[in-house]
Design a protein around this nucleic acid. Sequence first.
DNA 1: GCCAACGTTGGC
DNA 2: GCCAACGTTGGC
Length: 143
Amino acid sequence: MNHWLFKSEPDSWSWEKQKAKGAAGQEWDGVRNYQARNFMRTMQVGERGFFYHSNDGKAVVGIVEVSAACHPDSTSDDPAWECVDLRALADMPRPVTLDAIKAEPACRDMVLVKNSRLSVQPVSRAEFEHICRMGGLEPASVG
DNA sequence: GCCAACGTTGGC
DNA sequence: GCCAACGTTGGC
């Protein structure tokens, strides 16, 4: 079971919108980066990840679950672009800000910190659990 | 709004 | 296959 982080600008696709989709989930479309796509290709249904607000927000705001495996991105004519579907699973009781993550030695090596531009990225189990706790979630309840 | 970091494109 | 030019992302 791998863990992930999905970035979105709240102006274009917010956590509120994601939650509004409910159990039906939503295609994580629009990714036009090979590294990010390659990570999505390896994802399995049921894997969990963070929903991160970039730019305006800069915080992990919720937990999502992969609800459909990688498939062609319906918003692209180019078959090279694929994506998974995600559904909202839980709110972060307290959003975990980028500042807080950067200040945390256990999160020093996160891709979020080291390569701020990658929009879909892996998160280690230890990092996942750590950030859950920082946000007021028991990892076992969402991991 | 600026700009550093990074990815992609295209000429050679 | 190299690399300069360009476009985009996202933190600040």
